[in-house]
């Protein structure tokens, strides 16, 4: 009895709260179906839904459909996520578990790199990448992820690794495991939820990272979804319906990834069993 009422109140609270958070999304879908003249009206839903905002938006460019841009972006994301997940854990293990000279110094540097606003390093970085001949390729966008995936994720994983009791390492050591063995057999499985978090965030944030994309990608053949979306907004010519429709479509991969990947990060280690 008690638990059923508890469950119902839980669901009630959560659905009301979800609806509140989703209200803007509903507004967004409505707006994406409106004619331009109708957008200024306070109504949520259009009088006649313009589904062609979606089809026209999808095919706005004579050269490529959005499928091409989605393909490009997913390809870039594949690199980013692989790079981030692969290397962030390695580096975090080094910082979080191992003793070595100047560890504190390097860790401070790692944190400091996050504190300098990117706006002032973007130009020297562009000059560097330009000299290397990497402009108009995905390398400047993807490569940095292979170097630890960024300070944010390294620090995140360090915190998770430090939350794992050392008894486990000690036990493994007695069994003859090296530091490498401990990493692969103990730490890596235990931080799986955090790694999924890294993967999701890497995916979502690089999807959003318009400023870097606009700098480094110049030919339409290589455009990402983010770049393609900006094509709808010119100085005096904004295709509102198509813009809203396509930007809605553009966040769908992130939504889907989030929806399905979360079961891994929330499963946690409770079921894996930690002690005994």
């Amino acid at each position: 009895m008690m638990t059923i009422r508890y469950k119902i109140s839980n669901h009630l609270f959560l659905s009301v709260f979800s609806l509140l958070m989703l209200y803007p999304v509903i507004w967004w879908i409505g707006a994406s179906l409106k004619k331009t003249e109708e957008l200024r009206l306070p109504t949520i839903w259009p009088s006649i839904p313009m589904w062609e905002n979606y089809s026209n938006g999808w095919n706005f460019s004579a050269d490529y459909s959005f499928a091409h841009f989605f393909g490009n972006t997913l390809l870039m994301e594949l690199g980013n996520v692989t790079g981030g997940v692969l290397t962030a854990a390695i580096v975090a293990y080094g910082f979080g578990r191992l003793q070595f000279k100047l560890r504190g110094f390097w860790f401070s540097i790692l944190l400091l790199t996050m504190m300098l606003p990117g706006q002032v390093t973007v130009v020297p970085q562009y000059i560097l990448f330009n000299k290397l001949g990497w402009v108009d390729s995905y390398i400047p966008l993807v490569l940095p992820h292979f170097f630890g995936g960024g300070a944010f994720f390294i620090f995140l994983l360090v915190q998770f690794i430090r939350g794992i009791p050392r008894d486990l390492d000690e036990a493994a050591k007695i069994d003859g495991s090296s530091v490498y063995g401990i990493f692969f057999r103990i730490i890596l499985p235990l931080i799986k939820p955090a790694l999924v978090t890294v993967a999701i965030f890497t995916f979502i944030w690089s999807w959003d990272d318009f400023f870097a994309q606009v700098l480094y990608i110049s030919s339409i053949d290589k455009f990402t979804v983010g770049l393609a979306l900006r094509m709808f907004i010119d100085q005096f010519d904004i295709q509102w319906g198509q813009l809203l429709a396509m930007s809605f479509v553009s966040i769908m991969p992130s939504v889907i990834i989030f929806l399905f990947a979360q079961k891994y990060f929330v499963e946690g280690i409770a079921t894996t069993g930690l002690k005994g």
Partner: peptide
């Protein structure tokens, strides 16, 4: 462990020295 430590942080350290340090210094 000194060596192991540097091996593990190598991906970041290499990236930092090759890609990040120069723009920051600039």
């Amino acid at each position: 462990t000194n060596l192991a430590g540097y091996i593990f942080i190598a991906p970041w350290l290499i990236g930092f020295l090759l890609l990040t340090l120069w723009p920051i210094a600039q």
